[in-house]
Simulated assay, not measured.
Amino acid sequence: MASRPSSELKDDTPPGAKTLRADARRNRDKLIEVAAQAFANHGTAASLEDIARRAGVGVGTLYRHFPTREHLVEVVYRHEVEVLCNAAEELSRERAPDQALEEWMHRFVGYIATKRGMADSLRILLNSNSELFADSYGMVPIALRGLIERAVADGSIRADVDSTDVLHALSGTYSMPNSPEWHDRSRRLVRLLMDGLRWGAPKALKPQGA
């Protein structure tokens, strides 16, 4: 998963459930963070025992928070979508519009890497918990559209950009062959897309010093 600033994990404890102690909340958040990285790097081969060890807790603690692998995958998936969408707002505040868009696209690749690693469990969840995908559907396209609209208004990318086309191009990384070169190929795709988005943009056409 691509590196990114830490983000406070959403409290998704079910309504009416007992509030977690501070140390239990920290353990849970660490497990989610480590699991996301493990799924991105190792996919279905990611060991729950290894995730617990790397999070600094016993495997019993992992199973108290996440009784099944699918439960852990669901929470990680929700968190990854939330972090990716929040990043659009954060980057928009901190960077020039085209730079914010490019960095967000790299983070999208990290999100896809984690999603690929959870593919088998997500297919199970698709059949048993369609609400999971209904809740997150549309959030990512909205985040990308906002970034593109800002960059178009700034003149740093071309004006004839359709955010849906960009999202389809980025999402193609999901079905690329699983190989050691996957991350490098995905990063090159982002650079290629950004070159195309910047080509012919008003700022690119403006003479230097004008």
Rank of each mutant, 00 (worst) to 15 (best):
S92N: 09
V109M: 06
M118G: 00
L91F: 11
V81A: 03
V83R: 04
A134P: 15
L84N: 00
T114L: 02
C85E: 01
M118W: 04
E102V: 15
A113P: 00
N86K: 03
I112L: 07
S130I: 12
L126I: 10
V75W: 05
N86I: 06
L84H: 03
R116L: 00
S130W: 08
N86T: 02
H79E: 03
L125I: 09
L91T: 06
E80T: 00
L125H: 08
L126M: 15
S128F: 06
A134L: 14
Y77L: 07
L132G: 15
H79R: 09
L125A: 06
G110E: 04
A87N: 04
F133T: 08
F133Y: 14
R93Q: 08
A113W: 04
L126Q: 09
R93I: 13
S128E: 14
E103P: 12
E102W: 10
H79Q: 09
Q99E: 15
L91V: 11
L132S: 12
L125Y: 06
I112W: 01
C85Y: 00
E82D: 10
L91M: 08
R123Y: 06
D120I: 15
L101Y: 05
L91E: 01
R116C: 04
R116Q: 05
R107I: 01
H106C: 10
Q99T: 15
S128I: 15
M118E: 04
K115A: 03
F108A: 03
R116P: 00
A88L: 04
E131P: 09
E131D: 14
A100H: 11
A134G: 15
E131S: 11
F108N: 00
V109F: 06
E80P: 01
H79V: 02
L122F: 03
A113I: 07
D120H: 12
L122Y: 03
M105P: 05
D98N: 13
E89L: 07
L122M: 05
V76E: 03
A134W: 15
V109I: 08
L84S: 04
A113N: 02
I112Y: 01
L126P: 09
G117S: 00
C85V: 05
R116G: 05
D98M: 08
F108L: 01
T114P: 05
W104M: 06
R78M: 11
A100N: 11
R116S: 08
S121H: 07
Y77R: 07
R116H: 05
A113V: 12
R107P: 01
